[in-house]
Design a binder for these strands. Structure first.
Lengths: 221, 221
DNA sequence: GTCTATAACCAGATAGAC
DNA sequence: GTCTATCTGGTTATAGAC
């Protein structure tokens, strides 16, 4: 028996050792950076954790910024793939909202690093490369667009972009706040119950039909 | 002429040069750490910015952790002093809520570093001293207690601690999410309008009297 | 693609004159 | 309390054998 922690597959077919190493580095770096932040995560930490020497890490990613860009890009892709699409099935608003919230809650629960990375690395502006800053904003913008489109579809706000923006900001800030809470209480999840009540009230406040608090089925037939 | 940036008062009476230097260091460190985070802020950066040599900084605070603890302690004191006390004046729920939200919005607007420091430094667990970790949790706990007490007073939830906890978590997560948003849009403020609607709806959902959406004055007399 | 070894540098922290 | 000068160790990054 070699070691208790086979972080990477040394005996894998030589064919794709490179791709496997690359993934191992990204896994380790994502884990460490989401926990300690970009600045506090060193190449030696990543090297020690994933078992590859620093030079291999540099061979794959070129620089610390390069690792960061790759980690963030992968996190963004994975999170956006897990988030529900804008086309939510459901006849009425409440039905669509419940489907939407269930998907969102699961996506944020299954990809806990997604937002944390954005948070811990958002303050990179210091010595980060232009590519790194661009990727941070790309990530953030993608989430904003997703939130606006989704909530617009759920509540039927295609002709009321301001209301859609408000609901999107509200939802994203709650999600970010939950990500923050998670590094004090690791088990914290997005509380969809209160969020559901809040979104329905906000929509009702904007006069969106089918969101009145009394009578869960909407307007009486 | 000496320099265009007199960051500290070199010609001040010798009497309290120490106290002034201490404050200057804390100001600079707070500014930098809230922008770049703890790990990315170096002693040399602080030294260059405030004009005092590294050894003076160490004389005042002993270590980088020491600076951090002092910065966070001062931020916590200032923020909690600016936040409204639990005893909110106002006859009915809506009145108290409006006073509360106005105070909170102003406190978070006038102390933009307060929460950012907590965010950027929350991930210090890596090589931080026990004192530093303790201060982070002290800060966070103080905010949690404040939120619970305040919202309990506003909505009259003394006998319903679970509802008070839920409203407190909701409010704090929105505030944290806003602090996060602020490092993408520096002008972002806590949006008390939607938060007001949401809190009223949550309270109504819990059956708190005086929070029904229709009829802003509460129950008809 | 992966390794050993190391260059060049900057971080946190200290010594000791004044 | 403040300064100049410096020590030590870790940091990013590279050279070059295999």
């Amino acid at each position: 028996m070699s070691s208790a922690k086979p972080a990477r597959d040394v005996d894998a077919p030589v064919k794709d050792r490179g791709a496997r190493s690359r993934d191992a580095i990204l896994d380790t770096a994502g884990e460490l950076m989401s926990r300690y932040g970009y600045a506090a995560t060193s190449i030696s930490m990543i090297s020690a954790e994933c078992g590859l020497p620093p030079s291999s890490i540099y061979w794959h990613f070129g620089s610390k910024d390069g690792i960061y860009v790759a980690v963030l890009e992968r996190a963004r892709t994975a999170l956006l793939a897990a988030l529900p699409p804008a086309a939510i099935p459901g006849a009425d608003v409440v039905q669509r909202l419940d489907v939407f919230l269930a998907h969102v809650e699961e996506a944020f629960r299954r990809h806990p690093h997604g937002l944390k990375l954005l948070l811990g690395l958002g303050m990179v502006q210091q010595d980060a490369s232009a590519a790194a800053v661009a990727e941070v904003h790309h990530y953030r913008d993608a989430l904003v667009v997703w939130a606006r489109d989704s909530l617009s579809a759920v509540f039927g706000l295609h002709d009321r972009p301001q209301a859609a923006d408000e609901l999107a900001r509200f939802t994203l800030r709650m999600a970010s706040g939950t990500a923050v809470a998670r590094w004090f209480e690791p088990g914290a999840v997005l509380e969809t119950g209160p969020l559901r009540v809040a979104l329905l009230a906000l929509a009702a406040h904007h006069g969106v039909p089918g969101t009145r608090p009394s009578g869960e089925g909407g307007s009486p037939g």
